[in-house]
Amino acid sequence: MYIEIEELAKEFGSSRALHPVSLSIPSGALIALLGPSGSGKTTLLRILGGLEFPTSGRVLFDGKDATGLSVQERRAGFVFQHYALFKHMTVFENIAYGLRARKRRERPTEAEIGRRVNRLLDLIQLPDIGARYTSQLSGGQRQRVALARALAIEPRMLLLDEPFGALDAKVRKELRQGLRDIHDTTGLTTIFVTHDQEEAMELADLVVVMSMGRIEQVGRPADIRARPASTFVREFTMT
């Protein structure tokens, strides 16, 4: 699914989180929203997921206006910064949640839910953890379960808020590859938010550098490195 963002702006009370920004995201791309805290990258991601609504501007999915679509109608697989796994449910129930939440006639049978959850557990390479509670998992395992839960609803896109932020350096490197693999297998348009320029440059096809609620530059990692559009971009991508 390709996404177009037209003159999107967001205000919280009197403060501007997002100045009018425009952006085109090609179908199947892996995009990084890169910027320091307060740059508006998470706000942009949450607007795409339907968790916030813009003050002005439009969002189009596959050319159709999606600005007013509710969060449920968007079918965006969302991975939260601290994963937001359901603590009182097992890993299996966490992943099955989206399937059980469907309307009765669209809901898969219990056997089908079981098959799909197990297939997702295989995909994240944790086939045996279905019966555990999330408190019994390591940070890296939790992140992968959150990814599987988001994929279970057969999303039209994948949105990840600092997916590696809560992990130590070694696990972070492993899971970067994991996300790349899952993206390549599913072919989903994937957008992740990060403040780590190395992560963005290494993982993404296209990097969107943001600062103070504005898009500073959009480009392939090599192009941004070679031709930074502003002093901010040069300094931020150097460190």
Partner: peptide, 24 residues
């Protein structure tokens, strides 16, 4: 965050309340 996660997974507000908020 957990309620928001439930909503992105397609749950209605009531479902999110009964399956996520209330157990918590």
């Amino acid at each position: 965050a957990e309620e928001e996660a439930a909503l992105t997974l397609g749950a209605t507000g009531w479902r999110a309340f009964f399956t996520v908020t209330l157990p918590n």
